[in-house]
């Protein structure tokens, strides 16, 4: 079943084109990652899908049905964890979760059970009577998540849920998202942290300037670019002649030297590392530490856009 279907969505903020014929298709059971730098249009896309923003063109379907601001029946099936913390500062953790649950669930008994489960799910049992201002950044993020998922929605939008949290909380949040997915929720996850997206998403869309640059699984995206391996070698005083020799190798796509580290982007192949190191030895150079790694999503982004994934 297609949970989210967006076609040719166009959204302008006066002169700025925030979404440029944006298309999206998310299937049931996916953890779908929207990856892009800040200002790339991720949050705008989500707010359009949630019918908070007007848009100039395009169609949005959720659960196979046209989404409208008054489709409360569809909204009941959606969970939202916004990028900005959206809780009542004056209410306790338990009261906040209960309030947001009541936006979806009217039955008091059922709500009490769901609130209890949500508190346990995000690990806030010890903080139920705390007010948000007493919580650390990580705990507030967990509260924000609890408020969004308490009613056990089928489709959850998580907009940068790990911004400004400590590594421990981040790991807990990521594990929680996996758990939600295992329990049957489809997750739309936006982030500009590519490691997170790589780690948890079953499918990833890379976007920038409101446009979709690429979409696929982690491996599919990496296969889209020519780089099969990235090799880094610590070398002292690499002569230009040696750099040219490296660049001349058949496996080399591009190579650069910053005065300390030689970086070589190679095509796929089993002998790339030994070929590069042999060439350095033939040039009479000694080298220090050597790193070899497959390309990252950042490399994919770099190759697709010509720029680094900026914050």
């Amino acid at each position: 079943m297609t949970m989210v279907q967006v076609e040719n969505l166009v959204k302008r903020y006066k002169e700025v084109l925030a979404l440029d014929h944006f298309n999206l298709d998310i299937k049931e059971g996916e953890i779908f990652g929207l990856l892009g730098p800040n200002g790339s249009g991720k949050t705008t896309a989500i707010n359009c899908m949630l019918q908070l923003l007007t848009y100039d063109k395009g169609t949005i379907k959720l659960f196979g049905q046209d989404m409208e601001p008054t489709r409360y029946d569809l909204k009941k099936r959606i969970g939202i964890v916004p990028q900005n913390i959206a809780v009542f500062e004056e209410l306790t953790v338990a009261e906040n979760i209960d309030y947001f649950c009541a936006l979806y669930v009217k039955d008091n008994k059922k709500r009490a059970r769901l609130v209890k489960e949500a508190i346990e799910f995000v690990g806030l049992e010890e903080y139920v009577k705390f007010r948000p201002r007493k919580l650390s950044g990580g705990l507030i993020r967990r509260l924000n998540i609890a408020c969004g998922i308490v009613h056990k929605p089928e489709l959850i939008f998580l907009d940068e849920p790990t911004v400004a949290v400590d590594p421990q909380s981040r790991n807990a949040i990521l594990e929680g998202i996996r758990s939600l997915n295992r329990n049957g929720s489809t997750v739309v996850y936006t982030s500009h942290y590519m490691e997170e997206v790589e780690e948890i998403c079953t499918r990833i869309m890379i976007m920038d300037h409101g446009q979709v640059l690429a979409c696929g699984t982690n491996n599919e995206l990496k296969a889209m670019i020519g780089t099969g391996e990235k090799i880094q070698v610590e070398v002292i005083d690499l002569p230009d002649k040696a750099l040219e020799s490296i660049k001349a190798l058949n496996c080399t796509q591009k190579a650069s030297y910053d005065g300390k580290t030689l970086e070589v982007f190679c095509t796929s192949g089993a002998q790339n590392l030994s070929t590069v190191l042999q060439t350095l030895q033939q040039e009479g150079l000694t080298f220090g530490r050597v790193y070899s790694e497959p390309p990252t999503l950042n490399d994919v982004f770099l190759e697709l856009t010509g720029t680094e994934l900026r914050d």
């Binding site: 707010n47 949630l50 019918q51 908070l52 409360y72 909204k75 009941k76 959606i78 939202i80 916004p82 900005n84 913390i85 959206a86 809780v87 009542f88 947001f100 009541a102 936006l103 979806y104 408020c147």
Partner: peptide, 20 residues
């Protein structure tokens, strides 16, 4: 301010909820 999506994040969150 806490009910309007254009006035606060809390307003936006509430506006996206399933209560009329």
């Amino acid at each position: 301010a806490r009910t309007q999506a254009n006035l606060s994040p809390l307003g936006a969150r509430r506006a996206a909820g399933a209560t009329k």
